[in-house]
Design a protein around this nucleic acid. Structure first.
Length: 596
RNA sequence: CGGGGCGUGGCGCAGCUUGGUAGCGCGGGUGCUUUGGGAGCACUAGGUCGCAGGUUCGAAUCCUGUCGCCCCGACCA
């Protein structure tokens, strides 16, 4: 391609809409153009990048025996009703765009395709003999994000690769899952990215095991925790760790103590000789579920620890067998609105009586009581006495007449010791999620009644897996990770063009001739080359080449008359003055091309 | 949803406090000079000042409403 025909419009100033470097560079280089909030046009240069990523993905998936398809984006509400996701995806903070057609029938714009593919597979596949199946598509997805931001990182319309696998049994699912994990590692390595694979929460998709692939970058939206040896990594939403030993509380006689106005752990410790790890912190939450009911939840956790809301929300989901749409701390306003006068905020114990809820309207009248292991494991502790300005001290669980659901809802933090190896500690880094793989199990096949006949002649729901890659997000993540103050430094494998040949002075015929000769030879040898034939000053061409991040630059300039050109590497910034033969030799080594 | 900020040629901004119907830099076009790191000079084109009301002799500027965009928060007792 000749730059004169490339529609290359670069900006010197940073557009005000962009905040992070990758977004700024993509805009300045003319890779993307915003149409409206969270919706972008992929300009020709970026489309080349996206196609290269796509090719790598297709090639690696094809190696694993995946089939490619293209599924409808407009989807009827019925299949989403059946899977139980219509409400949670369209109401409240749901992310699905929904609309009505002229008959008044409800449709959704696909944010993902579990429902569609499950229905189609169940209609076409009937026997275990036809399994397993692993099928994927690369296409535009729509999500009405609460807050789109950072350009392609969190946009409302984006390109995603999603694959779905169907199996006769769990073992087979697990083996495909691990196949796909390897395929993903190959894909991201080929794309030239630094990434980590971490344990993850499966979120609204649901299912059992799930892992995320993260491109490490300062601006990442996710906090990930990694062991120093790299053998354990998890999203903080999911991370587990060994809790620091607390300070043991003396085994004194249980009693109560007046603690006027000491509502917080800090105040309690300041006024008494307590350590936060000796106190049980009790938090009242309100969970809104997809049965339209609001459930009060009483959470107990050791005073020096924090609650992981995702873990908490998952536990409630499991316990009630419902989807939790929203979970939040019960606010003073809630209490006021409900007309409860004696709610002992700051002085609650795990045994807070359900009687408090008796007059409440619109909430369930019993607390779901959840105790984190950290609280349950305390032999002797301090906790609220359920009366204003009073705490129980030197108490133990057998003295509290209460039944708790005991589990792990503790937030792991950097510095915690690792479960797999006590000598290692978790360190934090930020990541951009570019891939996510799930073992869905039979959640969707059961709800959508998608079955096959097993080798025993019995109808069984499929075992399913699903595997996503954010193609457009990956492109931007690559920029976030690979740039300098001059612009983008694309990894060669996904660069829009591999080589740019600059004619320093277009009016100089020797330069022009030698540049054209190089250009033709590169094109002949299937090297993706750009020829900057614009009638511009050399400086502009250098700036543009750097900004749009072409990995190799050849300059036909001053030395053209003696048959020499410059070969410059964008990343290493090494420049060599070479004759044509040497240039071709070097490039043929770089690109594994025999002919050059 | 809540809070904050911003809407003025393609991009970045000034003007608004104290009303008098738009200006700068970049970019575009033409010409001359220049020619290895976003050139210089001259000329030139391009704007219903987001939109709708209102106040006023007169509104980019003041008032009301509305739409759009960006940022922060979705939090512990």
């Amino acid at each position: 391609m000749r730059v004169s025909r490339l529609m290359l419009i670069t900006l010197r100033d940073v557009p005000a809409e962009a905040d992070i470097i990758s977004h700024q560079l993509l805009l300045r280089g003319g890779f993307i153009k915003r149409l409206t909030g969270g919706i972008y046009a992929y300009m020709p240069l970026l489309w080349k990048v996206l196609k290269k990523i796509t090719l790598i993905v297709e090639e690696e998936l094809s190696k694993k025996g995946c089939l490619q398809t293209l599924l409808p984006q407009l989807q009827p509400s019925e299949i989403w009703e059946k899977s139980g996701r219509w409400k949670s995806y369209t109401e409240g903070e749901g992310i699905m765009f929904s609309l009505k057609d002229r008959q008044g029938k409800e449709l959704g714009l696909g944010p993902t395709h579990e429902e569609v593919i499950t229905q189609i597979i169940s209609q076409t596949i009937h026997s275990y003999k036809q399994l397993p199946i692993n099928i994927f598509q690369i296409q535009t997805k729509f999500r009405d994000e609460i807050r789109p931001r950072f350009g392609l990182m969190r946009s409302r319309e984006f390109i995603m690769k999603d694959a779905y696998s169907f199996h006769a049994n769990e073992n087979d699912l697990q083996s495909t899952y691990s196949d796909m994990r390897n395929a993903y590692k190959n894909i991201f390595t080929k794309c030239g990215l630094d990434f980590v694979c971490v344990d993850a929460d499966s979120g609204a998709i649901g299912g059992a095991a799930s892992q995320e692939f993260m491109v490490t970058a300062e601006s990442g939206e996710d906090l990930i925790l990694i062991s120093s040896d790299g053998s354990y990594g998890a999203n903080q939403e999911k991370a587990i760790s060994i809790i620091e030993e607390g300070k043991l509380l003396d085994n004194n006689k249980p009693s109560t103590r007046k603690t006027p106005n000491q509502k917080t752990i800090e105040e309690l410790c300041n006024h008494n000789d307590f350590h936060p790890s000796q106190i049980i912190k009790v938090l009242a939450y309100l969970a809104t579920c997809d049965d339209n009911k609001k459930y009060p939840v009483l959470v107990s956790i050791r005073g020096d620890q924090e609650v992981n809301d995702i873990k908490l929300s998952n536990e409630i989901s499991h316990k009630l067998n419902l989807n939790v749409l929203e979970i939040r701390i019960i606010s003073n306003e809630d209490i006021k609105k409900q007309g409860i006068t004696n709610f002992p905020v700051g002085f609650m114990g795990p045994d807070l009586s359900d009687d408090l809820l008796s007059k409440i309207k619109g909430w369930e009248k019993k607390f779901i009581r959840i105790a984190d292991n950290s609280a349950k494991n305390l032999k002797s502790f301090i906790c609220g006495n359920n009366i204003k300005d009073e705490h129980k001290i030197f108490y133990n669980w057998s003295l509290l007449n209460t039944k708790q659901h005991v589990c792990d809802i503790r937030k792991a933090i950097p510095g915690d010791r690792c479960v797999h190896d006590k000598t290692q500690k978790l360190k934090e880094c930020r990541g951009i999620e570019i891939g996510h793989i799930f073992q869905l199990g039979r959640k969707y096949s059961e709800s959508l009644n998608a079955t096959f006949t097993s080798d025993k002649g019995i109808e069984e729901p499929f075992w399913m897996g699903c595997y996503g890659i954010g193609i457009s997000r990956l492109a931007q993540a690559a920029v976030e990770q690979n740039h300098d103050d001059l612009g983008i430094i694309w990894p060669v494998s996904i660069a829009p063009y591999e080589v740019i040949i600059i004619i320093a002075n277009i009016k100089n015929n020797e330069q022009k001739t030698i540049a054209e000769e190089i250009y033709e030879k590169l094109i002949e040898n299937h090297i993706d080359a750009l020829l900057d034939d614009r009638d511009e000053r050399a400086g502009i061409k250098f700036k543009d080449a750097d900004l749009i991040g072409i990995p190799w630059r050849i300059v036909a300039g001053r030395e053209a008359s003696s048959g020499l050109v410059e070969l410059h590497n964008r990343k290493t910034k090494v420049t060599e003055l070479l004759d044509l033969k040497s240039v071709f030799k070097k490039l043929s080594e770089e690109f594994n091309t025999e002919k050059l």
